[in-house]
Amino acid sequence: MIPWERLDAVTLEDGIELKLMRRGREYSIMLGANELMNSRLSGSEEALASLAAERLQGRQAPRLLIGGLGMGFTLRAGLRALDDHASLTVAELVPEVIDWARGPMTEVFSGCLEDPRVILHQGDVGALIADSEQAWDAILLDVDNGPDGLTRQGNDALYSAQGLARAHRALKPGGVYSVWSSAPDPAFTRRLRQAGFQVAEVPTRASTKKRGARHMIWLATRPG
């Protein structure tokens, strides 16, 4: 078997190391000993965008905010599902992840960052949400490991009652707040409903071949 090769690493603010690994043409982003994502498993991250896009049918020039660049699975799925008048802003906090997308993982991204519909923002998606009022047709979050995060305590603010109130305010009426998680979280579902969202929980397979682990996607709609 081909051994894993460590391509790069960065130490996050809490002292945990984020690593980019490669084995042949397979890539992995790991947080310490935990694999956050793998280039062979994109099903649930793609569904994060495609399920939200289904709910935006008929909207003119929809504006989407994606929290977390990762390996670009959600971004590419959104570009495929939406027409040429859409715009997709991707907020990525860790600059090295952007460097990996434009460097070692160029083949994985397949030129999607050069799509004219894409705006890449190096910074905190939470700050963009907090500064917005009825600005987005959809907010898609693939940040950390979901509401039960691994990488940053600051990410907890995205999933708190206050964070959900900000997301509700940032969405246009009828807008969709789509959240990826590695596992179900009934408490988060309750917080979404308490924040005024209409909520659907969608279990989704990690693999595009409908195999592998089950992940959870919340589709929370702002009424109106």
Rank of each mutant, 00 (worst) to 15 (best):
V176T: 03
R22G: 07
S42P: 01
L7V: 11
A170R: 03
D14E: 11
R222K: 15
G70F: 02
L141Y: 00
E201L: 10
G196M: 05
P203A: 03
I66G: 00
L65Q: 02
T189D: 12
E107R: 11
L140G: 04
T89L: 11
K19N: 15
S132M: 03
R166W: 12
R55M: 01
G32N: 02
A52G: 08
A135I: 05
G24M: 06
K210D: 15
W4N: 06
Y177L: 13
G15K: 09
G67K: 00
L69A: 02
A61V: 06
L7Q: 10
D83H: 07
A165R: 12
S28Q: 13
I98M: 12
E5F: 10
D8F: 01
G24S: 10
G32R: 00
A157S: 14
V118L: 07
F109V: 10
A170M: 06
L150R: 08
R76E: 05
T106M: 12
V94R: 08
I129C: 03
R63Q: 13
S182H: 15
V202D: 07
E45H: 00
A53Q: 01
V10Y: 11
T151I: 14
L18G: 10
G70L: 01
G174T: 04
L36W: 01
L79I: 04
G224R: 05
M71A: 00
S50F: 04
A138F: 01
Y177S: 00
R80E: 14
D115E: 08
W100C: 01
V179F: 04
D8N: 05
T204H: 07
R169F: 06
D8G: 06
T208Q: 13
V90K: 00
E92C: 10
E114A: 11
D185F: 02
A170G: 10
K209R: 14
Y177I: 07
W4G: 05
A130F: 09
E107C: 08
L88G: 03
L20K: 06
A53K: 00
R63P: 06
P223S: 05
A33Y: 11
R80Q: 12
L141S: 00
E96Q: 11
M30W: 11
I98W: 04
P95D: 05
W180N: 01
N34K: 13
P3Y: 07
L79F: 01
R205N: 06
G43A: 03
Y159M: 03
M105A: 10
D142A: 04
T208P: 09
S42M: 11
L75H: 03
K209M: 15
E17V: 13
E26T: 14
P116H: 09
